Amino acid sequence: MLPLHQDPAFHALLTGSYERLLGKPLVPGDLSPTAAAAWLYEEAPFAILAHNTAPDPVFVYGNKAAQRRFGYDWDEITALPSRLSAEAPNREERQRFLERVQRLGYEAGYQGVRITKSGHRFMIEEATLWQMIDADGVLHGQAVIIPRTRDL
């Protein structure tokens, strides 16, 4: 079984749901699907994470930029409950944000404090979170693009 960062069906879900909800592409349009998936994982100049629909959602995807920023490798980040990306005092605010996205489909311009594996705090800025809904309307989780962060 391919890891999700190499899975064409997951890449289509991630990028297709983004484009359907936001009306713009997530990756450069001149790339083949395989090259686009590799670019998003290896080279994208922004962090991108996705979690599943479990009662306590777990990250199922985190590109190299997200891994570097949060301080986890692929195996670690894809075993991490997404709530643990925020400190306990910030989890309630994060949960309210996730619930708004569930109602509206996506939300842009979000900022909030997050925490690395080593406990370092940083601010995510101008983040966009969206529902990963496939072409048949089935919800598979939520994803976020984080274009900018700053240390606290």
Rank of each mutant, 00 (worst) to 15 (best):
M1D: 15
L2G: 11
P3V: 08
Q6N: 12
D7H: 12
P8F: 06
F10V: 03
L13P: 00
L13M: 01
T15G: 01
T15D: 04
T15Y: 10
G16D: 01
S17T: 01
Y18T: 02
Y18W: 09
E19Y: 06
R20W: 03
R20Q: 10
L21Q: 08
L22A: 02
P25H: 03
L26P: 00
P28K: 02
S32C: 04
S32D: 08
P33K: 04
A35K: 14
A36I: 03
A37E: 00
A38W: 08
A38E: 11
W39P: 04
W39C: 04
W39I: 05
L40D: 00
Y41T: 05
E43S: 15
A44H: 07
P45E: 10
P45L: 09
F46I: 08
F46M: 08
I48H: 08
L49H: 11
A50N: 08
A50S: 14
H51Q: 12
H51S: 03
H51D: 07
H51N: 09
A54G: 12
D56K: 15
D56S: 11
D56Y: 15
D56I: 14
V58S: 06
Y61G: 02
Y61S: 06
G62S: 06
K64R: 14
K64S: 08
Q67K: 09
R68Q: 15
R68D: 12
F70Q: 07
D73F: 05
W74L: 09
I77N: 06
T78F: 04
A79Q: 07
P81Y: 00
S82R: 13
S85T: 09
S85W: 02
A86G: 11
E87G: 12
E87C: 14
A88Y: 14
N90T: 08
N90P: 08
N90D: 11
E92T: 13
F97Q: 10
L98P: 03
R100A: 05
V101R: 05
Q102Y: 14
R103V: 05
L104T: 15
L104N: 15
G105E: 03
G105L: 03
Y106A: 03
E107G: 10
G109F: 04
G112F: 03
V113E: 10
I115C: 10
I115G: 04
G119F: 04
G119K: 03
R121N: 11
F122S: 03
F122Y: 07
M123K: 15
I124Q: 02
E125I: 13
E125K: 15
E125P: 00
E126G: 09
A127H: 06
A127W: 04
A127C: 10
A127M: 01
Q131Y: 09
Q131E: 07
Q131D: 12
M132W: 01
I133A: 05
A135R: 11
D136G: 11
V138C: 11
V138P: 10
L139S: 14
L139K: 10
H140D: 00
H140K: 00
G141I: 02
Q142M: 14
Q142L: 06
A143K: 00
V144W: 03
V144C: 10
V144Q: 01
I146Y: 00
I146S: 00
P147I: 01
T149C: 11
T149D: 08
D151T: 13
D151K: 12
D151M: 15
D151C: 09
